[in-house]
């Protein structure tokens, strides 16, 4: 568990907005430890972040498919001073390119900041933060 949390509340997905609700299904899936990505029913394009219309064919019919959870680290940063009272420094934030294409921001669970490298293969892992919040994270693959 490389990210240490303080006792302060951890920022969590908004999900109740009247402005943008499309990411609701993704977070429901994460609660059941499944990583769902949005796919356009008409042209099959993978859409991330999830949205109400497909930019390629303008269909408004989407479905959610379970991703393999495999990917490679595309980029990363390391906070030596914590910018948010819920996080203890130092901690790393990684950008993972999933095999299915989308790139997602996350944290590693078993890799220390100094060991992280771009291109490192990783696999999804889930971390229950509290009873309403489960976050998808990544562990070393293979």
């Amino acid at each position: 568990m490389t990210v240490q949390y303080t006792d302060k509340p951890i920022p969590r997905p908004a999900l109740w907005g009247i402005i943008y609700r499309s990411s609701g299904s993704l977070w429901e899936g994460v609660k059941e430890e499944k990583f769902l990505i949005q796919k356009c029913k008409d042209c099959g394009k993978i859409l991330h972040p999830p949205r109400p219309m497909c930019p390629a064919c303008h269909s408004t019919e989407q479905e959610y498919v379970e991703a393999s959870g495999k990917g490679k680290i595309y980029s990363y940063v390391t906070y030596n001073k914590s910018p948010h009272k819920a996080f203890k420094a130092p901690y790393s934030v990684i950008l993972v390119e999933l095999d299915e294409g989308p790139r997602v921001i996350s944290n590693t669970v078993d890799v220390k900041p100094e060991e992280i490298e771009i291109g490192m293969p990783v696999e999804i892992a889930y971390e229950k933060i509290d009873d309403e919040l489960t976050l998808y994270k990544f562990k070393k693959a293979g």
Partner: peptide, 8 residues
Amino acid sequence: IDFYEPYG
């Protein structure tokens, strides 16, 4: 808030 801040 949904995708970046939960991860710091």
